[in-house]
Amino acid sequence: MFAGTRAQAVNADLRGQMQNIIEFQDVSKSFGSLQVLDDLNMHVVPGEKLALIGPSGSGKTTILRILMTLEDISAGEILLDGEPLWHEMRGGKRVRASEHHLRKMRDGVGMVFQQFNLFPHLTATENIEQPQVLTHRKSKAAAREKAAEMLSVVGLVDKRDHYPHQLSGGQQQRVAIARALAMDPKIMLFDEVTSALDPELVEEVLNVLRKLAEETDTTMLTVTHEMNFARDFADRVLFFEKGKIVEAGSPEDIFTNPKEERTRSFLRKFLTGIN
C-alpha cells in the first residue's frame, strides 16, 4: 500500500530535482488588527515530514488551516505542486480562487484536528467510508474495503462498528487519522492531534503517526507540543514565533544545538514544564 520509503523521499540527491510540493511566498495573514503570519516564506519537498513548533499564537496552526482552505490569506501566494492555491487565472487575470478551484486543490490535502471532529452519527467504518463515496464517487464496497484497510493501519479493526462516543479520545483520533488517510492525500496536516487527549492516551496516537512517517511517502506537516515526538517524526523542524520562522533545521540541529537564543529559551521552558 505505501510506496517508497522515507529515505527515498528525502534523499538529498533527489531534492535538487524535485519541485516543491508546498511553497509559501511572502504570505501574510491577519485577523482584524492581529497579524498572525508576517511575510512568511517556506517550502516543503515531496515526502518531507515537517514539525512546526513554537509558543501558542505563533501562527503554526494558521499555516495548516490555510493549506486546508479553512482560512484565506491576506497577502502573498501559496503554491501546491506549482499551482496557486488561493488564486487562479481567469480571462488572463489573476483573481481570487473560486470555490470550484479550491475544491480541486483541496483534493490532495487531508487534515486531522485537535478535537477529532468525527461525525458522531456515523460508526467508525461509516466515518471513513462516507467521504470516499461522496467526494471520490467510489462504490460502497470499495470504500468499505479501504476503510477496513485503514482501520487495520491504526489498529482499530475490532472497533469498526463503534460510534465515536463509544470510543476513547485516543481511539477517536486514530479513526480520524484513518478517515483522512483513506482519501489518499498527497499532503497530510496534523493540528495538535494529541492536545485534547488524556496523558495516558497520547502515546497510542503518536505511535501511529511515527509509523506513518516511517512507512509512507505522503508529505506531512504536524503542529505539536510533544518535543520527543517531533524529534522522531520530523525530517525538518521549524521554530515559529510571532508569525515568523525563527529557526529551521534537522531535529538534531533544533533540539541539540539550537543557534538562536529564542529557540533555546523556548525549549528550556518546555523541558522544565513552565510553558
Binding site: 479553512l70 483541496r106 462516507q130 467526494t135
Partner: peptide, 21 residues
C-alpha cells in the same frame, strides 16, 4: 459544532453534501 463543518470541508464535501450528510 464548527469543527463538523471544518471536517466536512477538509474531506471536500460540497455545500449540499455537508448539509445533507
Amino acid at each position: 459544532p464548527k469543527g463538523q463543518w471544518e471536517a466536512a470541508r477538509s474531506l471536500n464535501y460540497s455545500t449540499i453534501q455537508t448539509w445533507r450528510h
